[in-house]
Design a protein around this nucleic acid. Structure first.
Length: 523
DNA sequence: CGCGTTTGACCAGCGC
DNA sequence: GCGCTGGTCAAACGCG
């Protein structure tokens, strides 16, 4: 209660003392009344100001009373030096008609004055809104230009690479869908009545497509060989190669007969390190263990899981405990889901996908860009960019290390293991900020320091990762852009953008398209 | 009986 | 060419 009073008092003080903060008037709600009172008090002495503040607990009562009292005091104090109560006497029936009429006129003048001030502030508010709209508009235009430039660059690049049209066309579409925050007609045709969850998944699809495109572009440069990949299955299972094992007979069959012996096609992996006593982390997806191996240098076996939420889902994951600290569970995801994800899995997929995309977006220039000084700004102290070359991992691996104390940094380690020949002139420079901002669905609160070291619900882990990513200044910027984009997104019929349930209306994507395999949580 | 796990075998890439 | 390693398969097994 006291805090509340103090807060209100502060508000009153700031509004009146400075002649009135315009923003205060924009706040609306119950604070407007005290603000107006303060404006009245501004014309009176400090005694009445204090009086008004003290009476603040009964705003409706003291509102008119204070105004009348202040006017009375300002009018009659000279003629009645003793009359602090002079104004109060105006309410008595003994007052004359002229005096009463005069005193009734006075508040009207003040009211008019206040209304004029209010109108002026409304005008200013309107101007500010106009400026905001203009800025938003400019941003939108710039974003569109960026999209155009990126698409053009991608097109030129792909033409130069002479890639088969099927796959790349779909990827271009994906990229376009990514950048286009408007509703995707092509992707929503499968289900006209797209639920909120589906919308969420659509967004994650877009994000995953971003990774898909980037990964494929990167991999093309890695292997220096045009992919024989056929995206015939209406582009759905184009990610079936994503686990990067052409060795897999089944996957080869799925990809068709053109699976000639070639260099392994790998794509980015997202690895999440977290402390968990549970042998397996549940991330909203259904997994089936298909193998276990003893990895070199680690006494703990590595388990291989395959997503079983849909037939033929190419997503795999590896789970292995850290050799140094067996409480640390490392889960590595690879591949893209070809089915809708449950909300829990979608949320995490979006979050980690954003992290992956954010890092992958930095692989657009050169290997040098991977160094801490090159790619990651100094404002990201938690980003460890030790470019660990790993022969066993000829693909970038984004590791979200959630095992460090979040008091220092929730995402202590966020490094990527680049390809040995990591020169990735990706056509997709950067990631659309509206997609990077997707994980804003979660409360931006940072996890408690002790949370990470214990078993906790997957929700909190999702929040942890989300908070970790959101703590990135760049990500925050992107998040802000995403919010603005969502705000500008076509509203639903009821006029709401539906931001509360975390599903920005009008964002592209389709649950039918492969999704980024980046889901995670602990049991 | 169906489903998931276990586990040995197999295959391919890579380094020497 | 050989061995090592990672990744996958599939039969055996267990469980509800």
């Amino acid at each position: 209660m006291e805090n509340q009073d103090r807060r209100e008092f502060t508000f009153l003080g700031s509004g009146g003392g400075g002649g009135g903060n315009n923003n205060d008037f924009l706040r609306g709600g119950p604070h407007n009344k005290p603000m107006m009172i303060k404006e009245v008090d501004f014309f009176s002495n400090s005694t009445s100001e204090r009086s008004a503040r003290n009476n603040n607990k009964k705003p409706h009562d003291h509102d008119d009373e204070t105004a009348v009292k202040d006017i009375g005091s300002s009018t009659h104090q000279v003629s009645d030096p003793a009359g602090v109560n002079t104004g109060l006497n105006l309410h008595t029936p003994s007052s004359g008609m002229l005096k009463s009429a005069y005193d009734q006129e006075k508040p009207n003048i003040e009211l008019i004055k206040l209304r004029g001030e209010l109108d002026r502030l409304h005008d200013e508010n309107g101007k500010l809104r106009g400026m905001l709209d203009q800025i938003t508009k400019n941003y939108s235009e710039l974003q569109g230009q960026l999209l155009m430039a990126m698409q053009k660059q991608a097109q030129e690049y792909h033409q130069g690479q002479k890639v088969e049209p099927n796959g790349m066309s779909s990827q271009r579409i994906s990229a376009q869908q990514i950048m286009d925050t408007r509703p995707s007609t092509a992707l929503d045709v499968n289900d006209p009545s797209v639920s909120d969850d589906n919308k969420t998944q659509e967004l994650s699809v877009s994000l995953s497509n971003t990774m898909e495109v980037m990964s494929k572009e990167r991999d093309r440069h890695m292997i220096k060989v045009p992919r024989k990949q056929t995206c015939t299955e209406d582009g759905l299972d184009q990610s079936s190669q994503s686990w990067g094992s052409p060795k897999s007979p089944k996957l080869d069959e799925a990809k068709g007969e053109e699976q000639a012996p070639e260099v392994p096609f790998r794509k980015a992996r997202v690895s999440v390190r977290a402390r968990s006593d549970a042998p397996l982390i549940s991330d909203g997806c259904q997994w089936r263990k298909y193998g276990q191996k003893m990895a070199k240098g680690n006494p703990c076996p590595r388990a291989y899981y395959r997503c079983t939420m849909a037939v033929g889902c190419p997503v795999r994951k590896q789970v292995q405990r850290c050799a140094e600290d067996k409480t640390i569970l490392t889960t590595t995801y690879e591949g893209n889901h070809n089915h809708p994800l449950p909300p829990a899995a979608t949320a995490m997929a979006n979050t980690t996908s954003a992290a992956a995309a954010m890092l992958l977006s930095g692989s657009t220039t050169s290997k040098e860009a991977l160094t801490s000084s090159g790619f990651f700004p100094s404002s990201m102290p938690y980003v460890s960019t030790m470019a660990t070359l790993s022969a066993s991992a000829p693909f970038p691996t984004i590791t979200l290390d959630l095992t460090q104390s979040p008091s220092c940094n929730p995402m202590q380690l966020l490094h990527r293991i680049p390809s040995p020949s990591a020169t990735f002139p990706l056509p997709l420079h950067g990631v659309p900020p509206q997609l990077l901002g997707h994980p804003m669905y979660f409360p931006p609160k940072l996890p408690a320091p002790q949370v990470l070291g214990q078993r906790h619900s997957h929700t909190s882990m999702v929040e942890t990762v989300t908070a970790a990513i959101a703590s990135d200044p760049n990500f925050t910027t992107a998040l802000a852009a995403a919010i603005s984009t969502i705000m500008r997104a076509p509203r639903s019929n009821d006029g709401s953008t539906n931001p509360t349930n975390g599903v920005p209306a009008g964002l592209p994507g389709s649950p039918q398209l492969p999704q980024s395999c980046t889901t995670f949580s602990t049991n």
